[in-house]
């Protein structure tokens, strides 16, 4: 798997993603990564696991558009995005955004914008599984 944008059930390796990102160009002087992980506690509830539902097709398309928009909006060299959709236990990796640029400022800004925009534009829904039952997460503005 060498695709820069993926939605997958299986876990991913940050090291491997960063290695592939860095292999894309010798112009890279900075790499910034955002890793989203599953928490065991949310708004007063113990979380046993989380699950993601996706609108398959549209979600991958939206992620590819997000990568393209990040490349166009910021002076960065390359971007990789991986989001998992299986059932995840607390501590597991959910999402990785890795941005490479010549200088650090652009990579920090692009990475921050990319995760914020992912939350608004990619059709994925998180369900929390607690000892009391399951509930869909209502996103915060």
């Amino acid at each position: 798997m060498s695709d820069e944008v993926r939605i997958q059930e299986e876990d991913f390796s940050i090291e491997e993603e960063v290695r592939r990102l860095r292999a894309s160009s010798k112009r890279i002087g900075a790499v910034v990564t955002f890793l989203g992980t599953a928490r065991d506690f949310s708004e007063g509830k113990t979380i046993e696991a989380i699950e993601f539902e996706q609108y398959a097709g549209m979600a991958l398309k939206a992620l590819k558009q997000l990568r393209q928009a990040t490349l166009e909006r910021f002076d960065v060299v390359d971007v990789r995005i991986v989001h998992r959709v299986s059932t995840m236990k607390p501590g597991e990796q959910i999402v990785l955004i890795a941005v490479a640029s010549e200088h650090r400022k652009e990579a920090f800004e692009a990475c921050s914008w990319c995760i914020d925009t992912l939350k608004e534009t990619v059709p994925l829904w998180k369900k929390e599984i607690t000892p009391e039952g399951e509930s869909w997460v209502v996103p915060h503005p």
Partner: peptide, 10 residues
């Protein structure tokens, strides 16, 4: 046509 609640990925 998809009718969707607000997204909550990431």
């Amino acid at each position: 046509v998809a009718i969707m609640p607000p997204f909550s990925g990431g």
